[in-house]
Design a protein around this nucleic acid. Structure first.
Lengths: 225, 225
DNA sequence: ATTTATTTTTAGATTGATCTAAAAATAAAT
DNA sequence: ATTTATTTTTAGATCAATCTAAAAATAAAT
């Protein structure tokens, strides 16, 4: 009952969590196998094992869904993964896109006190470098609000999570400003006259964005005013 | 050839490294099994596997010793283990004696860039919280000098690694001063008159040690003047 | 130099995680 | 409502890591 789960079992639980967007939704074997880069037969074996451990509900030919105990474990892994990502980016200076693979390993380290202390060391972050929310110890995530920079209140802070446009000129413009996915944005002021916005990027100097640029830049809000 | 080693294989290499105090010395199967908390049969199986991978030299009934490739891997694991221990103590505030088990897990994380950055983040430490030397990227360890506080040069810095006496009164005295294994000591001055010494403990306020106390407190030197 | 004790190795089994290939169930198409 | 296609499951194998129990080699003792 208190048996420790293998890395593989943990990864399957995480995969089921990520694949079932709405709560309790069933994940079918093939999708699971695909997401784990393995065969349906292997996924099927594992699903039976997890069901036997009462972590998921599994009905033949109907797919698998997380039971409360399994969901708790999955959320804890997600929590660890995202906290480690914050560590890697904020403390070790990794880039946004380099950390996932390393966090995939770190998330399996088993030590509740380690995560407690890490969380504190990082200042109890509620969002990872990709703008995804970090579940708290009880698995509760802060509601994430996604909005364009054009529509948020001034003095909001957030993380760039998407660009609503693939115009090369826009992307080049953002690049020259040093804005990329994961950049931290502080919205300082908005001019009523033309809808342009002043911001800081990763705590850097004040910069200006025209309204069309601001409209295409999506952030998730870490602080709202 | 470039196949990744399993955690178990890495742990066996590390155990052989630790058990063969002098270089190239053979480790016998039973000792290895004992140190791995497993059976001689299992140790024997593993030893054959590692020999087949050219990481150790193994002769039936004669024991195993690390080959250069195996030693390199072992030293790298030791490096990772000790760097993580520094992180856990210096950054996360764990106590000296709580970190070993967690570092046993962290040492197997595979990412050279992670260790490079962690090392930098920690300020390129040369010693772990237990006073053991940290191998550099090439597996070279700084010679560690162990000495009593009574005999070191003033302005030396070091880590408490032993108390040469188990007198309860001495231990209580050290305890009341806040000195324990792993404490960082800065030796400030020595009075010629009575051989007493002033020090700081973990960067705290100046404290005094009488000569008999100083004589019994062993440190490994991190900085010599 | 035998006998005895200890250490080391082998043989055979088990368990977890995986695979391929074939069978069974479900869904889609005519 | 059959046929066809797709998905899912089972059966049987393999490989790493482990075990127990027995056999073989070495070391120690008389």
């Amino acid at each position: 009952m208190v048996t420790e789960l293998s890395f593989t079992e943990e990864n399957y639980l995480k995969a089921i969590y990520h694949l079932s967007s709405q709560d309790g939704e069933s994940v079918n074997t093939n999708a699971l196998a695909e997401s784990m880069s393995t065969t349906p037969a292997s996924a099927n074996d594992m699903v039976k094992r997890l069901a036997q451990k009462n972590l998921i509900r599994y009905q033949k030919y109907k797919g698998a869904s997380l039971l409360p105990s399994g969901k708790k474990i999955a959320l804890n892994i997600v929590r660890k993964h995202r906290l480690w990502e914050v560590f890697l980016v904020d403390k070790l200076g990794f880039k946004w896109d380099e950390v996932h693979v390393i966090a995939e390993q770190l998330e399996h380290i088993k030590s509740p006190s380690l995560i407690k202390r890490l969380d504190k060391f990082l200042g109890h972050p509620t969002m990872d470098p990709h703008g995804d929310p970090i579940p708290n110890e009880d698995g509760v995530m802060k509601e994430t609000r996604r909005a364009s920079i054009a529509e948020v209140d001034i003095h909001s802070k957030g993380i760039v999570v998407a660009v609503n446009n693939d115009d090369t000129l826009l992307l080049q413009h953002l690049d020259s400003l040093g804005i990329k996915l994961g950049s931290k944005i502080d919205v300082l002021e908005r001019m009523d006259f033309d809808g342009s916005v002043s911001i800081t990027i990763d705590e850097g100097p004040k910069q200006f964005l025209s309204k069309p640029v601001a409209e295409n830049l999506m952030i998730t809000l870490t602080e709202t005013k």
